[in-house]
């Protein structure tokens, strides 16, 4: 987590933040025409940029992905609430892969197990990103979770899982030659995994998958918010959840434990 701050002392990583953002924003442009929900999301193969840059450039990628989202929205004249949650969701999209795939840092060719790790890390990051954005926009009553959350997650899964391993293979050797790999800039400290990685990854996975499933169930009103709240109250031995919350408040309250788990997991990995 510390490297997210300490990277701001390194010129190369500061520039890489901008590069990630610019490439992310620019490569979305040709696809702007294939809009799924206008103004909020479109078919984006560019989502593979934050994930592959994450594994290559480490802490520069989450900032870059977040900024890329702002830049894209600003240039497209779309700066709004979507940008705020987009910023957060994309931050996680760029953050999770390098934290999860850390043991790969010294391997130029990732091999089969390495590729599987990259794919799993990307899948996790993709779901987290979609859950956060879907949750946020549902919370504000802008779009229902079941539409946007799902679209983002499926789009992310499709492109990050297919394209990231391909891009990684083609980019890793070359970026190391230019001393751009984050471990070359930040030194050996950046290679170590945190001691709480295990628990972090469990929390993150439960939060992500649980959030995705619960979000859909709540949003499609397959289960009522009050059912879930009652369930949670039972589990926690009585609590202080708002009773009778409806509409988007259901999703927002129902998903908040998942969001908390995601945040806690992200801090721990």
């Amino acid at each position: 987590m510390k490297d997210l701050i300490s990277m701001w002392n390194k010129t190369r990583l500061i520039v890489l933040v901008a590069v990630t953002a610019a490439v992310y924003a620019a490569l979305m442009l040709p696809f702007k025409l294939v809009t799924i929900i206008p103004g909020y999301t479109e078919l984006r193969p560019g989502v593979a940029i934050p994930t592959v840059f994450s594994i290559l450039f480490g802490p520069a990628a989450p900032w870059g992905a977040a900024f890329g989202n702002i830049v894209g929205d600003y240039l497209g004249g779309m700066l709004g609430w979507g940008s705020l949650f987009g910023l957060l969701g994309n931050f996680f999209l760029g953050y999770i892969p390098y934290r999860v795939a850390k043991p790969l840092v010294h391997r130029i060719k990732p091999g089969l197990w390495g590729t599987v790790q990259i794919i799993l890390a990307c899948a996790l990051a993709s779901i987290v990103c979609g859950v956060i954005i879907g949750w946020g926009l549902d919370l504000l009553g802008i779009l229902p979770f079941a539409t946007l959350g799902n679209i983002i997650i499926i789009n992310n899964l499709l492109f990050t899982c297919i394209l990231t391993p391909i891009f990684y293979r083609l980019l890793v050797f070359r970026s190391r030659r230019w001393n751009l790999h984050y471990t070359q800039v930040l030194g050996e400290d950046a290679e170590r995994r945190s001691r709480t990685f295990g628990i972090g990854i469990i929390l993150l996975t439960i939060g992500a998958v649980g959030g995705w499933v619960a979000g859909n169930l709540l949003s499609l009103q397959i289960i009522e918010g009050s059912d879930l709240i009652a369930l949670l109250q039972q589990a926690s031995g009585g609590g202080y959840f708002i009773e009778g919350a409806s509409g988007s408040l259901t999703v927002s309250w129902g998903l908040s434990p998942a969001i908390l788990m995601i945040i806690a997991g992200a801090i721990l990995i």
């Binding site: 500061i14 520039v15 590069v19 620019a26 870059g64």
Partner: peptide, 22 residues
């Protein structure tokens, strides 16, 4: 912070050049 702001404005400047390169 200055560096964060610099990086953000640099990102804006790089978009057209990335696009041109593409």
């Amino acid at each position: 912070p200055y560096r964060v702001g610099f990086s953000l404005s640099l990102a804006f400047r790089l978009v057209p050049s990335v696009y041109q390169t593409a």
